[in-house]
Nucleic acid binder design. Structure first.
Lengths: 338, 338
DNA sequence: TATCAACACGAAACCGTTTTCGTTTCATAT
DNA sequence: ATATGAAACGAAAACGGTTTCGTGTTGATA
């Protein structure tokens, strides 16, 4: 069913090399032969075998994407960006999920590193950031496989990186709440080992300090994972009286809004909310949620571009890595005054 | 940096075949040699090249997933299910997005069909279902590449299929609304060429007819795509007075709920809502949305299992295909009485 | 001492390409 | 008649493995 060069060569009684060259329209081959071969190939729908080409070229035209999760909007938009850009340049995208697990991240990388891909685009699992163990990344880069880290990155590894300015995003959001007249602004975040949460917390602090409001530590709720811990959020709102809330993702924010509404509070009259990630949740929440947009699709595109450029680029003597920082944007919606 | 069998053979002054066998612990090789080779391989971190093995075995251990979109919750859960199951069996997942475009679907399949993957798992793009042109699928199956179709399927192609009983899901939902005492039940759906929308519309009709309420065609709103057409939904609610709404996805439902709320209607006192897809939107909407759960992750797992079983199975003389139908589940939340 | 099996290993084919480097043939120039 | 060169093609190596089928050596057996 699948036809190879060898089959064509046998049928046409020429050599495999001739067939190969004829199909590439080589000057070496006579018009006659080329036409014969090309016609035959078209007739039997010949398509070169990618695997053989990969082996020969030592290039697979596949890029490996290793991310913690796929059901969160931010990561899906990044994948979409990667996929679009990569496809346009003839690359396929192999997606592996670490599910926030260090071991899975390691296993996935090892699976892919043995020839399956030309380079990695990844965002670290929370467990990896917690353990701060990056040997699997080191091994890969030392093998000469290019890596681009996005969003959840580490400075321990020398490679290209793409992030948004999380600190600035949180700063902008907090500033906006302050400008609105809010005095008691809470922050719902996760443990600091997540690079992004840490940066966002810093932005939040910075805005509060700059404005002279100061930071009240009891107004900062640190949850242990990105997953919803409904009980702790409930407890938090039982004990805290706040007039604005900044959340490091949209799920925390939307859930918090609901708790507030159930307590009879009006949004944004009594309390304002801002989240991170501009996904469906924010857009269709009631009231709609103001968020710091992370531009995931753009991040994906840029990551893919940086990776492919490196993959296809000549090996320079002096390896040079860059970190691209995207500007976050505040998407104003009904959960704050405007 | 990357070491090959040849390198080991040269260093240890044995043949490549000996190295290969030694690493596989072949009985043919003496204990001494095996230990030497294995120790050397471990020391230099030898890992066989996947591409070479793929070429030899004519098996890539990759499966191609072609889906219309990735930002919708249902598809991401399916991918997650596929990924989990496939990974456990040593397969990687190559994700391609058709973005609801026929051409992209064709191009992606052709890219992958030339040796990159052992089989396909796919859900048809809306454009493909609209054109009803399935030649790209036929070509692939005729080449002997196994295909599993899920959710958006067609009967034109002989292959394994996994779906949920969409008609039953809509029937159950509608029935529930009727049992609640609702008389004027609207349906917000998409054009019938989408296999799932068609089935859901049938279930809706069936429940209404069975109960004696009859179908009022003016209460059925058909949008042209899965994307939100805010204007048409607004217009619809301007002209229609209904006491319940069934939507073929959660976005339509959540957006409709908001319109209702903005008109001052109480949910579920004045009007009830049920959607399809049990995602974050439904869970965190206010009020939370009752939905027909599609069990995407399960669908993904089953699809992957069917595909891999077929890929690894002996070629039977008589090809036999099955269609697995999953039962939808009603997830009761606050958008209806309970 | 001849025979034979077991043992340990190597040569080579193969998977499907690409590409370099011949080699043959024939026409042209000398 | 001979040297030269281009045109057209083929042989073979290479990518990195796996696997079949030898083959040389050893020790035991008849």
């Amino acid at each position: 069913m699948k036809i190879t060069l060898k089959d064509i060569a046998r049928e046409l009684e020429v050599s495999i090399s001739t067939v190969s060259k004829a199909l590439k329209n080589s000057e070496e081959i006579s018009r006659d032969t080329k036409e014969k071969v090309q016609a035959f190939a078209k007739l039997y729908n010949y398509k070169p075998n990618n695997i053989a080409i990969s082996l020969k070229n030592k290039r697979t035209k596949n890029i490996g994407v290793v991310i913690p999760d796929i059901v969160h909007h931010f990561f899906t938009t990044v994948i979409r960006g990667i996929e679009k850009y990569a496809n346009a340049r003839g690359y396929n995208v192999i997606v592996c999920l670490s599910e926030e697990s260090f071991d899975k991240e390691v296993i996935n990388m090892e699976m892919l590193a043995n020839g399956s891909i030309d380079g990695f685009i990844m965002s670290l699992s929370s467990e990896t950031q917690q353990k701060a163990d990056y040997n699997h990344l080191k091994e890969v880069t030392e093998q000469g496989i290019p890596v681009v880290l996005f969003d959840r990155i580490t400075n321990e590894i020398d490679c290209d990186k793409v992030i948004i300015d999380d600190e600035l995003g949180a700063y902008m959001a907090t500033k906006r709440l302050i400008d609105e007249g809010r005095k008691k602004i809470a922050l719902i975040t996760t443990d600091d080992y997540l690079s992004v949460s840490k940066a966002r917390t810093m932005g939040y602090r910075k805005a509060l300090i700059e404005s002279g409001l100061g930071v009240d530590e009891s107004r900062i709720l640190k949850l242990s994972s990105m997953e919803m811990d409904e009980e702790r959020i409930k407890d938090f709102f039982e004990t805290q009286k706040v007039d604005a809330v900044l959340c490091v993702n949209e799920i925390f924010a939307v859930y918090s809004m609901r708790l507030a509404q159930e307590k009879g509070l009006k949004i944004p009259e009594d309390i304002s909310f801002i989240g991170f990630t501009d996904g469906f949740l924010s857009k269709y929440a009631y009231p709609s949620l103001t968020v710091v947009a992370q531009h995931g699709e753009k991040m994906g595109e840029i990551s893919a571009q940086m990776l492919i450029d490196k993959v296809e680029g000549e090996k320079e003597e002096e390896e040079t890595f860059q970190t691209k920082t995207l500007e976050p944007t505040l998407v104003i919606r009904d959960s704050i005054f405007h």
